[in-house]
Computed example of a mutant assay.
Amino acid sequence: MNGKKFVESHFHKYLTEHLNAEIALNTIQNFDIAMNWIRSTFFYVRAVRNPSSKYELQPRMDKDLIDRKIEEMCLRQIKELQKNGLVILNGMNLQTTVYGKLMSKYYLSFETMKLFRQIKGSETYLETINTIVKCKEFSDFVIRANEKGILNQLNGSPIRFPIRGRIRSNEDKISCLIQAVFGNLTLPTPALIQESIKIIRIGDRLSKCLLEYLRLRQSNDSKFRCYKALLNALTIVKCFHAKLWENSEFASKQIRKIGAVHSSLLVNAGKTTIKSISETDARTIESILNLSAPFGNELLLNIMITYPTYLLDISLKSENVIQVHLKQLNEEYIYIGSHTVLIVGDSLNNLLLYEENV
């Protein structure tokens, strides 16, 4: 078989994201450099050779008119970035902002960043989850006709935030699959299992970006009250990292060598927290899991090494002063990769303290 088909560019569909990334990297410092950069792309080559509606151009345009149209396109996208606080346009000079750097760091789409910029800081836990679910990064996951029955069954299972009515939209599917994973529910088809793995990976990136965005905005805007949203975002980051709800009975899935089956056996035996497992005799653990020694001893040692135990003491020193004392009880162990955050807020949604790696 013989034949040929020209490869076309999709660069213009993501021009906003590419421009922001190059400005954040300081590759593009003004509009002239931006245009020279665009002229070096495959998109420009194809736009000149094949001007068409695909590239927002008209057939048989001359090169000067094509350049002018691409300049307008580029300037329009830069002004959109400026409007949303991602770049600073001073005359024809361009400079990134902390939010533009954040968008580039986490490979966010422009639509997702605009969604984050609309956050008020007082969102509930469910509203924060729904913000992540609405992100454009999930647009590749579509609901298929043969999946609706399965998803409706999952929605009827004891998921934490059931979707009203029947599953109809792509967002409903994303929310349902995230909650199914966090709730340790079994997904019945290989396709949904594979999609859920990708969704959790994307959600982990988005939730971390949302958390960092709230911290940056709170640091740069003294009037922005965001304790509730920040606490919810921090909790959701934990959920995506552990692939479990923060109050899940299947907390043991986080322990090395404990999967879904062993975790269910521990839950049936009433061992629903890391603390309750750590206080259980090694031989009892082996009996519950139908495993031989020294598995129980290894499991308990792994818990002691991996999971810190804290004592939190809060005392009122005066009308305007609260003393927070945090002590690590098992100080003899060294924790690699553990991440601890101390966050304090008030009833007016003000963030009073945010300390990482305490």
Rank of each mutant, 00 (worst) to 15 (best):
K4E: 15
K5S: 14
V7I: 13
S9F: 06
K13V: 13
Y14I: 15
N20L: 15
I23R: 00
A24I: 01
Q29K: 12
N30G: 05
D32S: 11
I33P: 03
W37C: 08
I38N: 02
R39N: 11
R39L: 08
T41N: 02
T41S: 04
S53T: 05
Y55N: 02
E56C: 10
R60Q: 11
M61V: 09
K63A: 07
L65Y: 15
E72D: 07
R76G: 06
Q77L: 04
Q77W: 10
I78M: 04
K83V: 10
Q95I: 01
T97N: 00
G100A: 04
L102P: 04
L115T: 15
R117G: 13
K120S: 10
S122A: 12
E123C: 01
E123R: 06
Y125A: 12
L126S: 14
L126W: 05
L126H: 14
E127A: 09
I132L: 15
K136V: 07
V142N: 12
N146D: 12
E147S: 00
K148D: 05
K148F: 00
Q153A: 08
N155Y: 03
R160M: 02
I163T: 15
R164G: 15
S169N: 08
D172L: 12
L177T: 10
I178P: 00
V181F: 02
L185H: 11
L187R: 11
I193P: 08
I193T: 11
E195P: 09
S196W: 01
I202M: 11
R205W: 09
K208L: 10
C209H: 07
L210A: 03
L210T: 03
L211W: 02
Y213P: 12
N220K: 10
K223S: 07
K223D: 08
K223E: 10
F224T: 06
Y227W: 13
A229S: 15
K243H: 03
K243M: 10
L244A: 05
L244T: 04
N247E: 09
E249T: 07
A251Q: 11
K253P: 09
I255P: 01
I258S: 09
V261M: 04
H262R: 14
L266I: 02
T272R: 06
I274P: 10
S278R: 06
T284N: 05
I285F: 05
I285T: 01
I285M: 00
I288H: 03
I288N: 02
S292R: 15
S292K: 15
S292V: 14
P294E: 01
G296D: 04
G296I: 04
N297E: 09
N297C: 06
E298G: 12
L301E: 13
N302W: 07
M304W: 11
I305F: 08
Y307A: 05
P308E: 02
T309E: 11
L312T: 09
I314K: 13
I314E: 08
I314L: 13
S315L: 08
S315P: 07
S318Q: 07
K327E: 13
N330R: 10
N330Q: 09
E331Y: 13
I336G: 03
G337H: 12
G337R: 09
I343W: 01
I343S: 06
G345F: 03
D346M: 07
N349M: 06
L351G: 00
L352D: 07
L352H: 06
Y354M: 01
